[in-house]
Design a protein around this nucleic acid. Structure first.
Length: 260
DNA sequence: ATGCCACCTTCAAGGTGA
């Protein structure tokens, strides 16, 4: 089963690009972030044409996440638990039932958190704490679990071109990297680190400053796995070629293959 | 120190991202 994660930066603007990539690579499940539309604006029919059922957690203008699947979807959760005051659509989770058995999948758009020293940074840290708490509950189920998304965390120095540029940034702040490590220590495996691990393989290049042409990217999109999912992990790929497509997102897809 | 680019809303220009 191929499971992809992609921050598409507007599903409506990017629809032809997304459909083309789906046709070329054929993911069974796709976790999208930054769809930037409300539920009723989501292009369900276009994806149904390729065989996908969509579970959407949308929002006007900003954020928004979705899970698309060729296999039956059930048990959909929209938003993290214990967040009554959080009106950002940044989390959706669903149970995917393949012929070989179930896999629980989440699409995550973790807050950016900039600038530091504002409530945006506090919100990011609080959101990460709530994600960790929920991940702990999910891991207790001992299922195949895939937490995929745009984590907005530069975890290793080698996940950016020049760490000195990021010293005062919410993507690299010590508290944020510590929070990501704490999440992993609940018992999650980063697919990239487990199956490839090469340094300076990025998933995002800013539209500005000629970042793509200069090779100045960051690796902030991650697919985290429970041990039950990691045990059947066959491989992981960063689809860098998607950054060179027409009207590209600033992020590229990451895709894992599970032997299930 | 700020804008760069590209998206959003809704037609003008400011908010947001990373």
């Amino acid at each position: 089963m191929k499971i992809a994660s992609w921050n598409v930066n507007s599903v409506r603007t990017r629809l032809p690009t997304i459909l083309q990539w789906f046709e070329e690579t054929g993911p069974d499940v796709a976790c999208l972030q930054e769809i930037k539309c409300q539920d009723e604006q989501f292009p369900n029919e276009a994806f149904a044409g390729l065989g996908y059922t969509c579970a959407v957690h949308g929002q006007k203008s900003y954020n928004g996440v979705a899970i698309l699947s060729k296999h039956p979807i059930s048990d959909v959760r929209r938003g993290l638990p214990s967040s009554p005051d959080d009106d950002h659509a940044r989390y959706i989770e669903a149970l995917i039932t393949a012929d070989s058995g179930p896999v629980r999948v989440a699409s995550i758009y973790l807050p950016n958190g900039n600038p530091i020293d504002t409530d945006k940074f506090t919100y990011k840290l609080g959101w990460m704490a709530r994600l960790q708490s929920h991940a702990k509950d999910l891991l207790a189920k001992e299922e195949k679990l895939v937490l995929a998304g745009d984590y907005n965390v530069i975890y290793r120095d080698a996940d950016c071109w020049d760490p000195s540029v990021w010293t005062n940034d919410a993507l690299y702040a010590k508290e944020v990297r510590d929070a990501f490590a704490a999440l992993m220590w609940e018992g999650l495996t980063d697919a990239w680190l487990a199956k490839d691990g090469r340094e300076h393989h990025y998933t995002f290049w800013d539209y500005q400053r000629g970042a793509w042409a200069r090779g100045h990217g960051i690796h902030i999109d991650h697919i985290l796995l429970s041990s039950q999912a990691a045990d059947v992990l066959q491989g992981v790929q960063i689809h860098k070629e998607a950054r060179a497509m027409e009207k590209p997102s600033d992020h590229v897809p990451v895709m894992v293959e599970l032997d299930t």
